[in-house]
């Protein structure tokens, strides 16, 4: 983990209530895709955890949905604004898992942390399939970005206005995979848990106090004892999760 001041390069909406922000600053603390940042927002006491979409030397990109006071304030940030950020929090996804045909399953605003993961898996020569789930066509984001990387992308919409009609689990049926990585809402996780035929990793969210393992605010029970979502997670193995 590192702490630093980050400058907003850009911050703009990419779908209804969904924003993409590029932040310039220290990226030396980032070690894996699926990690998150904890950002101090003027007027609020607790930092706000936000998942990382992508990072390269000196630049972190996040995609977030406005869901409350913190993200609504963040959405108003303009290029040049500065934020105090803790970066490189959490374990992130494990790209060393023995997989040749990984499947990435994202639901709504859970999709962003899969992007950097997708990039890294492709770089390692894996055949990556991606399933993105949305409620309806208007809410779709990032489809092109994943396709451009070279992944085989399938989109599912609940109302059938785009792609496959139904849930991500409907889109998964015809895909050949030997491991999965997923990030999205709990209802989607339960459906995946009932459908998926391989091992996999799930990324969880929880209300956090500190974001770096000190306060025990975000603990969850696993088959191997209690874990802190912020420090021992947010990514957990399918085999350890108690549903």
């Amino acid at each position: 983990m590192t702490q630093g001041i980050y400058r907003v390069i850009s911050n703009r909406p990419i779908a209804p209530s969904v924003y993409k922000a590029e932040l310039a600053g220290d990226t030396s603390g980032l070690t894996a895709p699926g990690q998150f940042i904890n950002i101090k927002i003027e007027g609020l006491y607790l930092r706000r955890p936000i998942s990382i979409y992508d990072y390269d030397e000196g630049k972190i990109t996040v995609i977030y949905k406005t869901v409350g006071a913190g993200t609504e304030k963040l959405a108003k940030a303009a290029p040049g604004d500065k934020f105090d950020i803790l970066a490189g929090l959490g374990n992130g996804f494990d790209i060393s898992k023995p997989t040749q045909k990984p499947l990435l399953i994202g639901g709504g605003v859970g999709i962003p942390p899969l992007y950097k993961l997708c990039r890294e898996l492709l770089q390692k020569g894996k055949r990556v399939s991606v399933v993105l789930g949305f409620n309806k066509k208007e809410e779709i984001f990032c489809e092109k970005e994943f396709s451009s990387l070279g992944a085989a992308v399938t989109v599912a919409t609940v109302d059938g206005s785009y792609g496959i009609k139904g849930f991500v689990t409907d889109a998964m049926r015809n895909i050949d995979y030997d491991f999965f990585y997923t990030c999205g809402p709990l209802a989607m996780y339960k459906a995946i848990e009932n459908t998926a035929v391989t091992s996999g990793q799930f990324s969880f969210e929880e209300r956090m106090g500190c974001g770096f393992g000190a306060c025990m605010g975000c603990s969850c029970k696993t088959k191997y004892g209690s874990k802190r979502i912020c420090k021992d997670g947010p990514v957990l193995d399918r085999e350890e999760i108690i549903w």
Binding site: Y45, L46, G70, E206, G209, C215
Partner: peptide, 18 residues
């Protein structure tokens, strides 16, 4: 959980002695 909440110039916790 949730056992952490934002409050005015502070926070609420109900961790409960983990």
């Amino acid at each position: 959980t949730p056992r952490i909440a934002e409050a005015s110039a502070g926070l609420l916790n109900s961790v409960g002695l983990q």
